[in-house]
């Protein structure tokens, strides 16, 4: 569609001046939103791996005398295991034996026989199924409600909460990208409509000397493709510093879970494709606008 000669007046036409500047901010906004989606998606992926695998449930020792306490704690452990194993996404829950506990605590408390007399909390080793689809926030609430003294690994629960929040933001960003696409095509559509009014004489003459609708529409479309692409490139130029800025900024940040804020390859491809999509969108909407105007002529 690009190239070839044009019968349209290119110079004295305001569309040429403003269409790229309408498209550029749209592409900028979509690119930033899209980059956000991809970065967030990578982050969520890494957090997902963190919460996948195994997790630990701690059950505080029940109050009371040693024997009685041990008895009650055992009851709670059974109850917790029951709940855990009936939760979809959990493969297996198993209590650590007294010996294992003592071995775990030995570095801090020494391995005295006294340790065996202490009311130790019980630890459950929970194995998750591969796909990590357990809602830890819900599980923590359920455990805390039904089993006194039970608590889920705090860090994991918090991370899980973050994942749900991020997913919501991710969908919001996708909605923003779609919305911007719709607004951009509407803008191009009306801009082309204005150009049709300006070029009415040209269109009529071409039409009357026998140009087919496709010939006339093609001329407007290739112009819109060019202008849309130009706007897309401008928008992209504005976006790149922002994306690099995020990557450089997070390099300075310490801490594990924000380490991966650079745009993944798929994201780069999507963002670099945006000017092409803007050009295509501009071309198609221009074509539609021209056909609509021509349909009113005999």
């Amino acid at each position: 569609m690009i190239g070839g000669r044009s019968d349209l007046p290119l110079s004295d036409d305001s569309t040429g001046a403003y269409l790229p500047w309408l498209v550029a901010p749209m592409v900028f906004l979509s690119a930033v939103a899209l980059a956000g989606v991809f970065i967030l998606n990578t982050l969520i992926g890494s957090w997902d791996r963190d919460v996948a695998g195994t997790l630990t449930v701690e059950i505080a020792a029940a109050p009371g005398e040693a024997a009685e306490s041990a008895e009650r704690t055992r009851g709670r452990v059974e109850q917790a295991i029951g709940i855990l194993e009936n939760t979809p996404g959990i493969a297996r829950a198993r209590a650590l034996s007294q010996e294992q506990l003592v071995t775990l605590l030995a570095p801090w408390l020494g391995s005295s026989d006294l340790l065996k007399e202490l009311p130790l909390p019980a630890l459950l080793d929970v194995t998750l199924e591969g796909n990590g689809g357990v809602n830890l926030v819900e599980l923590a609430a359920k455990l805390a409600k039904s089993v006194p003294g039970a608590s889920l690994d705090d860090h994991r629960v918090w991370l899980n909460r973050l994942i749900y929040l991020s997913r919501a933001i991710e969908w919001l960003a996708i909605a923003v990208v779609v919305l911007i696409g719709a607004v951009t095509s509407a803008t191009v559509y009306f801009a082309t409509g204005t150009a049709m009014a300006v070029h009415r004489e040209v269109i009529e003459v071409l039409h009357l000397i026998g140009a087919a609708d496709g010939y006339i529409a093609g001329q407007f479309a290739s112009r819109a493709v060019f202008l849309g692409f130009k706007g897309g490139l401008i928008g992209l130029c504005l976006t790149l510093p922002v994306i690099f800025g995020i990557a450089v900024g997070t390099d300075r940040l310490e801490g594990g879970f924000l380490s991966d804020l650079s745009l993944p390859l798929g994201g780069w491809i999507a963002v670099l494709t945006l000017p092409l999509i803007a050009a295509l969108l501009a071309g198609l909407t221009a074509r539609a606008a021209v056909y609509r105007t021509l349909a009113k002529m005999l």
Binding site: D7, L8, L10, S11, E201, V202, V205, L208
Partner: peptide, 11 residues
């Protein structure tokens, strides 16, 4: 067609 008002394209 030779139009009465010519209808040439000025550009």
């Amino acid at each position: 067609v030779v139009f009465q008002d010519f209808r040439l394209l000025d550009h």
